[in-house]
C-alpha cells in the first residue's frame, strides 16, 4: 500500500505524548490535594517516646512516607484511568497503532511520575517551613539536600521509579479489565493466592528487601515496570477493534 507521507513511530508517539500531557494536565489538582493530605498526615508520622530519670523524651519524625503513599495510590489510579474507554478514544485523534498508544502512555506515565516524585519530595519542605515557624518544640538536625545531595537525588529517583511501577500496575489492571473482565478477576485471584505462598514472599524479599543499595532496588523496580508495561502492550495488542 502506498501513502503520500510516511510517518515514523517516533513522531506518532511524540505527538501522542504531547497531546496526552495536555489532555491529562488536570491531574495536577488531584496531585496537589493528595500531597496536601500527605503533609497533614506527615506531621508526627512516626512518633517515639521513652523516659529516663523521670524525664520523658518524645521524638516526632515527619517524613514523606504519607505523601508518597497517597501519590502511589494516585499513580495506580491514573495508570488504570488512562486505559478506560473514554481516554482510549482520545487516541482516535491520531493515525496511530496500539503499540504507539501504549508507548505514549508509558512515557506519559513516566513524565507524570517524574513530576509527582520531585514535587512529593519537596512537599516535606513545606512542612518543614510550617513547623519551623509554628512549633514550640526543639528541632533535631536532619539531612538536607545540601548535606547529602547524592542521597537526596537517589531518593527522588527511587520515588519516580516506584511511582512509575505503581502506575504500570494500574495500567496492566486496566488493560486486563478492558480485555476481559473475567481475565482481570482471574489475574487478581492468582496474584492474591501467590501473595499468600511462602515462595512469593521469598521472591518479593529478594526483589524489594535484600538489596545492598538503593540503586539496585531502583534498577530492579525499573525492570519490573518495563516488564509490566511490555506485558500490558502484548495483552492490549490482542484486543479486537471495538468502537
Amino acid at each position: 500500500m502506498m501513502f503520500l507521507s510516511n510517518i515514523s513511530l517516533t513522531s506518532v508517539v511524540l505527538s501522542q505524548v504531547k497531546f496526552k500531557l495536555s489532555a491529562y494536565s488536570g491531574l495536577i489538582y488531584s496531585l496537589i490535594i493528595l500531597q496536601v493530605l500527605g503533609i497533614l498526615f506527615a506531621t508526627g508520622w512516626s512518633s517515639s517516646g521513652t523516659s529516663i530519670n523521670n524525664i520523658s523524651i518524645n521524638l516526632n519524625i515527619s517524613s514523606i512516607d504519607s505523601g508518597f503513599i497517597f501519590v502511589s495510590l494516585l499513580a495506580i489510579s491514573v495508570g488504570n484511568l488512562i486505559t478506560t474507554r473514554a481516554y482510549r478514544y482520545d487516541d482516535f485523534s491520531f493515525v496511530a497503532t496500539r503499540l504507539s498508544s501504549n508507548i505514549a502512555n508509558c512515557i506519559v506515565l513516566l513524565i507524570f511520575s517524574c513530576y509527582a516524585g520531585v514535587t512529593t519530595y519537596f512537599t516535606v519542605y513545606l512542612m518543614r517551613i510550617f513547623l519551623t515557624f509554628n512549633s514550640t518544640n526543639e528541632f533535631v538536625e536532619g539531612p538536607t539536600i545540601l548535606d547529602d545531595p547524592m542521597n537526596s537525588l537517589l531518593t527522588i529517583l527511587a520515588m519516580i521509579i516506584f511511582l512509575w511501577m505503581f502506575s504500570s500496575l494500574g495500567y496492566i489492571a486496566g488493560t486486563l479489565f478492558q480485555n476481559h473482565k473475567l481475565l482481570f478477576f482471574g489475574a487478581l485471584v492468582i496474584i492474591i493466592m501467590l501473595l499468600l505462598t511462602g515462595t512469593w514472599i521469598r521472591i518479593s524479599e529478594i526483589i524489594f528487601v535484600e538489596n545492598s543499595s538503593l540503586l539496585i532496588l531502583v534498577a530492579k523496580t525499573f525492570g519490573i515496570a518495563i516488564l509490566i508495561f511490555a506485558t500490558s502492550t502484548a495483552i492490549s495488542n490482542r484486543l479486537g477493534v471495538r468502537v
Binding site: S46, N54, I55, S56, I57, N58, L59, N60, I61, S62, S63, I64, D65, F68, Y121, V124, M127, R128, L131, S135, N137, E138, F139, V140, G142, P143, T144, I145, N151, S152, T155, A158, M159, F162, V209, N211, S212, S213, L214, L217
Partner: peptide, 19 residues
C-alpha cells in the same frame, strides 16, 4: 522532677526504601 521534652525531626528518606 518529672519533665517532658518533645523534639521534631524531619526525614528526607522514605522508610519503605530502607534496605
Amino acid at each position: 522532677v518529672e519533665q517532658e521534652f518533645t523534639f521534631e525531626q524531619f526525614s528526607n528518606e522514605l522508610n519503605v526504601f530502607q534496605q
